[in-house]
Design a protein around this nucleic acid. Structure first.
Lengths: 222, 222
DNA sequence: CAGCCTCCCTACCAAATGGTAGAGAGGCAC
DNA sequence: GTGCCTCTCTACCATTTGGTAGGGAGGCTG
């Protein structure tokens, strides 16, 4: 092999993980065979099983990789979460962007939540609860200051919004069919994301008018 | 067979559909074998295939049955949707109740949306768009009257809220793990449902205080 | 009684599945 | 060179899958 194949193992492993992610997300774990994945990578099934001892280990690795990526994003998110209202958009937007960047991440999470609720619950506890706790604190502080609706249930709110972000991106291919046709799918998707952010924000913060005379903030639409 | 088995076919068919619904929802279509379903019903696989010509036909029947149930609910929903704000809760509650009554319905829909976005999109167009259109009209009227936020995107809003209701019930088994432990799952679930309704409502309607202050539109109650 | 229909069964099949055995090719250290 | 390690392959295996063939038991109608 050429010299630039200095780490062929990692390269193949990465490609396997990438294809497995795609196919698990699109067709589900049970709907994807090892031969399918191997074929997409360009190798044979036993070669794949050389890199991953079993199909289930591959699944765990896929999930792990995705959550590792998510973890990389966390610090930035936590920093934003502790800031003022203008930064609330940043948290939502950052999170949405993470899943929009690769919707397979969202699909994978939803599938896993349906297939293995217990396992997924443990991952949620580990990966999202710390961040959620920070946001909850921020919400409670906002409630004390009168910026946030008093009847918000912080934990439940955060759970719902996370769920909303993930699942609406996971199913955005057919969610758009709620609206009458005639709108380009790509534009409809943008409207959905914008509305998602609006819902998240306006169900948390009191309207500007009710708080003070502040120029209406532009919506998050990027 | 005894005389009270006047319609044994329908009886077995129904039981098959019930078990298939449960198992498809819990383990997915590909994760459920015909033998599993037959076993749960108490018959053998070929007997099952006597009632349903193929596994895929069974899947379609399961989906069809669920959507038929949903259709039974529609008139009541549409009636509520055309009423005043107090009735908005009724629409959300009615819909939520439909899925809470049997969360398998929600799980089934989410799975289907992930596995067959195209097919699911068609069903969405057929089953939820008409109802969504009515709600959208209602929202637009509310916007004219100043009861509803002007920057709500009706179609996107409805899509997001529907998505929120369904998917948060579909994944409620692990969504609760966002919050710290120590709360009974059943109570946490109630909090989630309550928060879901609150989010839906408060992201749509201006707060009461802000509305009294700005009654620009004619009070064209319905 | 015969004939038919409904419903369920055992036995079977071809295909696909996850996984193993074992060999071969290339690179690298000695 | 020899040996070793990494990586891929072909060939194979046991199991499970969706689905079929065909028969049998019970009931209904004539």
């Amino acid at each position: 092999m050429p010299a630039d194949w200095s780490a062929p193992q990692d390269d193949v492993r990465t490609r396997i993980l990438r294809e497995a992610t795609r196919m698990f997300a699109a067709r589900g774990f049970n709907g994807t065979s090892l031969s399918d994945i191997a074929g997409a990578v360009g190798i044979r099934k036993p070669s794949l099983l050389y890199h991953f001892p079993s199909k289930d280990e591959l699944r765990k690795s896929v999930l792990e990789l995705m959550l590792a990526r998510w973890n990389e994003l966390l610090p930035r998110l936590l920093r934003a979460a502790t800031s003022a209202k203008g930064q609330f958009d940043a948290v939502v937007h950052e999170t949405v962007a993470f899943f929009v960047e690769d919707p397979d991440r969202a699909r994978l999470l939803v599938r896993e939540a349906l297939n293995r609720p217990g396992e997924m619950g443990a991952l949620v506890s580990k990966y999202v609860r710390p961040w959620a706790a920070v946001v909850c604190d921020y919400i409670r502080k906002g409630q004390e200051q009168g910026r946030v609706y008093a009847d918000v249930d912080p934990e439940a709110y955060v759970a719902q919004i996370i769920n909303l972000m993930i699942s609406s991106i996971a199913t955005y291919e057919c969610i758009g069919d709620v609206a009458p046709p005639g709108v380009a799918a790509t534009e409809m998707r943008a409207r959905h994301i914008r509305e998602l952010c609006r819902v998240a924000k306006s169900s948390l913060f009191l309207p500007d008018a009710a708080r003070e005379e502040e120029p209406a903030g532009a919506t998050k639409g990027s």
